[in-house]
Simulated scan of single mutants.
Amino acid sequence: MQSWTKWFVRTTGFAMSSILSVALAEPAFAGSEDPEPAPACVTMHESWRYTDAANDCASTVGVRVVYRDGATGLCYSLPPGVTRTVGEGYLGQHGHPDHLAACEVS
């Protein structure tokens, strides 16, 4: 009976770790599609913990972080004069951000 229990626990652990790794994985951005860069009046600041964006444009813009590994972050709305956190810093899952891309906020 104990060998069946050990087998069940090992099999269940393996199945759960496989499911979690797929469920927690973030989709990488397809390399063939290159997102349009954010306007030059939007600047990015990177720290070890966060990536911030500042909008010095006259209108609201949508931006997302594009990381060096090709992954993209969520799309954030930035009103004029606003600075906000838009992604992970360089110690995050995707490493250093590469640039900010324009996006449509839904």
Score class of each variant (00 low, 15 high):
residue 23 A to M: 12
residue 2 Q to N: 13
residue 47 S to R: 03
residue 97 P to R: 05
residue 90 Y to E: 06
residue 16 M to V: 15
residue 58 A to T: 15
residue 7 W to S: 07
residue 19 I to A: 12
residue 39 P to R: 13
residue 65 V to K: 04
residue 42 V to E: 02
residue 32 S to K: 00
residue 92 G to P: 02
residue 14 F to K: 02
residue 7 W to V: 09
residue 53 A to F: 11
residue 102 A to Y: 04
residue 61 V to T: 05
residue 19 I to K: 04
residue 67 Y to F: 09
residue 36 E to T: 12
residue 103 C to L: 13
residue 105 V to H: 14
residue 67 Y to G: 03
residue 52 D to E: 10
residue 67 Y to V: 04
residue 45 H to D: 10
residue 37 P to Y: 09
residue 25 A to M: 11
residue 19 I to H: 06
residue 105 V to N: 11
residue 95 G to L: 07
residue 31 G to E: 07
residue 66 V to K: 04
residue 66 V to Q: 04
residue 68 R to A: 12
residue 12 T to R: 08
residue 62 G to Y: 06
residue 89 G to L: 03
residue 29 F to Y: 10
residue 76 Y to S: 15
residue 83 T to I: 08
residue 80 P to D: 09
residue 32 S to R: 00
residue 41 C to I: 13
residue 55 N to I: 04
residue 4 W to P: 00
residue 57 C to K: 01
residue 82 V to T: 04
residue 28 A to S: 10
residue 45 H to I: 07
residue 80 P to T: 10
residue 37 P to M: 01
residue 51 T to S: 07
residue 24 L to S: 01
residue 74 L to Q: 14
residue 51 T to F: 05
residue 79 P to H: 06
residue 38 A to R: 03
residue 40 A to F: 13
residue 12 T to E: 06
residue 37 P to S: 07
residue 29 F to P: 01
residue 22 V to A: 14
residue 10 R to L: 15
residue 92 G to T: 05
residue 106 S to E: 14
residue 105 V to K: 09
residue 9 V to T: 12
